[in-house]
Design a protein around this nucleic acid. Sequence first.
DNA 1: AATAATACCGAGTAAATCACTAGGAATTAA
DNA 2: TTAATTCCTAGTGATTTACTCGGTATTATT
Lengths: 150, 150
Amino acid sequence: MKLSTRGEYGLRAMFDLAMRQGEGPIPLKDIAERQAISGHYLEQLIAGLRKAGLVKSVRGAQGGYMLGRSPEEITVGDIVRVLEGPIGPTECVSEDDAAYCDRSETCIARRVWARVRDSIVEVMDSITLKDMCAEAEKIAQESKGNMYYI
Amino acid sequence: MKLSTRGEYGLRAMFDLAMRQGEGPIPLKDIAERQAISGHYLEQLIAGLRKAGLVKSVRGAQGGYMLGRSPEEITVGDIVRVLEGPIGPTECVSEDDAAYCDRSETCIARRVWARVRDSIVEVMDSITLKDMCAEAEKIAQESKGNMYYI
DNA sequence: AATAATACCGAGTAAATCACTAGGAATTAA
DNA sequence: TTAATTCCTAGTGATTTACTCGGTATTATT
């Protein structure tokens, strides 16, 4: 019942971009170093995010990546869906392509998994990158401005 | 972000036992057939559940399995933890052995995952086998007693 | 015009995990 | 004694994971 590193790294990378919004394109190398992620691997993840419109890229020297839309319009759920696929603890209640199963209609276990899925979706879709930035700001103030963790 | 078949099959098997409580030991073969699970594979899952005290066994001919305690004292969370390990979308917020990470203290992503974990735990720990049996009963009545799905 | 910094792309891979299968030993009711 | 059952250990093919490697294309800077 774990995410893969794709979702983990992906959220960290997107948050990294969100915290640097307005600073122009951020090179992937910088993100990878700050977040301690393999550059080549992050490239693959960010390719998916770009295709989904969650990030924009600028090619060439001084290029890099930026958020594809404003931080309040990007949720954790958006990111997780791109990198991990449709949300759901089992195939039979997976958001998009819920797998067919004979017993679907009346399967009690399935109803349980659907409730689990709903609670995950509820949380993931309610948290935006802006919310995360605000929380970072709050913590920074509490600990006297030292935002070493970003 | 999916359970493995261990958790899926495990819940179905436990629900199967719950629905047959009081009927004496239920042979594994019967459960496996009803739930369309490989017998040998289910054996392995149920071995874990037995060691955790969630099921009791009776050996020999006419033997089988029964719930280890009453259905209202067994939650979905209990079963999932035995078969899938501690709950949590990432290692860094895993219930028991949350993996150490430098940035743990102030990591904003980690706080997000912790909220996801809490919402999963909240649902899984609030649903008991008794609840599931009650729901099955309700559906059976709605569809005029035909409990073909169990 | 040359260089260096970057994004973009596709293939390959070692290790781990998954979902079983196989084959038997031990136990017990009939 | 037999048949039905639980209990146990080991093996295994397929898939997934978390990368690495080696380039090509693009563009700002010099």
